[in-house]
């Protein structure tokens, strides 16, 4: 018999950690989504597709900035000492992923603004002709435009990676303590962004391309989740227990049904049929992918907080 009793009952900490509510999963999802959008925009710019006025890369930077700002607002809502938020920007802590993230969030905006200026949406070019002039001048410098594309891809990658490292660096929560988490969140972000862009793109060839890309990302995501779980199951006792929280514990229904089933496998089947012209493209699969990506962050953040280091001899 092992019996452990404690007099501690601190708010947000006991009986199991619950410091992060909806704000953090929403922010992590948005971070991944915008990261994916930046990578797609950067790729289209690099490939010279920006010359086409109907290219989706014309609207993505603006959408990205709006969505990311909403995510940062969610992050701000989570802070307990809000008036001191500016303290983040008086220092850079190399060992702190959160410090990296704070600065990454600052540098992605100029990159998105630069990609916005390459091909300004019609509404802005009509209302503010001076923006259009900047755009025309920018387009004359082909290498600068290509570099903006590359920078968007790199910073997008960094943003997506950081959202995973943020959690995996917190070694006290065994479920998060995996070096696969950055890859999982990056691939999931790319997949959600592909699904999102698939819905907003006007050009049929772009929609087709992104549906195919999304299928690739979804297949990769299944492998990454598999490796993430295998990594846990072949680690220490606390890590095995953490994996079981997802596989057969209280978060198993959400993980199997919403993350894997409705979030990955079923939309993958629908999109595979669509790209092979067996059925028509509908927004159903992309919406499932996006909601699945959001639920993935929820499950990982909540289940991770539920797991903790305990004396291994206390474990069953």
């Amino acid at each position: 018999m092992n019996e452990y009793t404690t007099t501690r009952h601190n708010e947000l900490v006991d009986p199991s950690l619950h410091i992060w509510g909806w704000e953090i999963p929403v922010y992590l999802f948005i971070g991944g989504l915008v990261a994916g959008m930046m990578i797609i925009t950067g790729y289209f710019i690099f490939k010279g597709r920006y010359k086409d006025k109907a290219c989706v890369c014309r609207v993505l930077p603006l959408l990205g900035m709006i969505i990311l700002s909403a995510g940062m607002f969610a992050l701000f809502l989570d802070l307990e000492h809000k008036l001191y938020t500016w303290r983040l920007y008086l220092t850079f802590k190399v060992a702190s992923p959160m410090s990296w993230g704070a600065w990454i969030l600052i540098v992605v905006y100029p990159a998105m603004i630069a990609s916005f200026l390459i091909n300004v949406p019609e509404y802005f070019s009509k209302k503010f002709p001076w923006i259009d002039k900047i755009s025309e001048k920018l387009q004359q410098h082909k290498y600068a435009v290509k570099n903006i594309g590359v920078i968007n891809m790199l910073l997008g990658g960094l943003l997506g990676i950081y959202t995973g490292v943020l959690l995996s660096a917190l070694g006290a929560r065994p479920l998060w303590n995996s070096s696969m988490l950055w890859l999982l969140f990056l691939v999931s972000g790319l997949s959600a962004a592909s699904a999102f862009v698939h819905m907003v793109a006007k050009r049929v060839d772009e929609r087709e391309l992104l549906a195919k890309a999304d299928n690739g990302f979804l297949i990769l995501e299944i492998f990454v989740i598999g490796l993430f779980i295998i990594g846990m199951l072949t680690s220490t006792k606390v890590h095995i227990q953490s994996a079981l929280v997802l596989l057969s514990g209280i978060y198993a229904p959400a993980f199997w049904v919403f993350v894997l089933g409705l979030g990955i496998v079923i939309p993958l089947i629908i999109q595979l049929l669509a790209v092979n012209h067996k059925i028509k493209h509908t927004p159903i699969a992309p919406i499932m992918v996006i909601v699945g990506g959001l639920i993935l962050r929820y499950v990982i953040v909540y289940a991770g907080q539920y797991t903790r280091w305990v004396d291994a001899s206390l474990l069953p």
Partner: peptide
């Protein structure tokens, strides 16, 4: 302190 709670999550 900005109250981000990363330290709470990092403490075993």
């Amino acid at each position: 302190c900005i109250g981000c709670k990363a330290c709470l999550a990092s403490c075993p």
